[in-house]
Amino acid sequence: MSERNWNTDIIGFILPALIFITWYLVTLEGKVPGYLIPSPVNLVRVAVDFATGYANLTPYGGTLPAHALASVQRVALGFGLAAAFGLPLGFLTGRINLAKSSLDPTVHLIRIIPGIGWLPIAMVWFGVGETTTLFLVALAAFFPIYVNAAQGASSVSPLLIRAGRMLGASRLTLFTTVIIPAAMPSTVAGLRLGLGISWAYLVLGELTGVTYGLGAVMMDARMLGHVEMILVPMIFIGLLGRVSDMLLVGSFKRLDMFREESKQ
């Protein structure tokens, strides 16, 4: 059993290893010019320099913390806004018919328009940069959060609701003690989707013109011809996206653990 898992793990590494070796070889031989694809060694050096500024290999040496902080703040704020609206509205439409019939059609109508399609009008409304980015992130992340919270709340087993009611739950306590906990798996899935989309729209917003942010570095580096500094922020965005997802999942696990501990 464990041996089999080990084998499949190995198989999963073959393709990335081949790609890496090929990448290394083509850049080593100089078959592909460095201004199109930098060598992995060079990329790692620039990445470390971006983080620490040890050799100032590029004009961006040592600026990672400032750019990453700007990006993380935008994601946190945009995602926070999306969750602040998406969760309560989702739970309400999932349970209350009046809320569903008055809100749901409009939300789904707006949802049909791809998020990217909002970019030009957002630039007209909010100008290039900060607010536009926030608007795009919040708007795009709202939909999966809302839809999944609603789906989770509406599919709570009617028997659980009956159990709650006969044990003395009022309409409000039923919401907080039965419906929301029962809707949690779907809700967390929605939050994770929303967080992933937040990072995607963050990059879109930052590409359009902010001073600080990983997306801004990529666009700036493209104009200045630093191809490594286009790729390096991509890697850090991927890492930050993964870390933020782990933190999100972890905090819900922690919540469960806290619940388990609190009863002693």
């Binding site: 087993s157 659980l160 159990a163 709650g164 039965v178 906990p181």
Partner: peptide, 8 residues
């Protein structure tokens, strides 16, 4: 049983 699965 219809217990709440998130509670012990």
């Amino acid at each position: 049983p219809v217990l709440f699965p998130w509670l012990d």
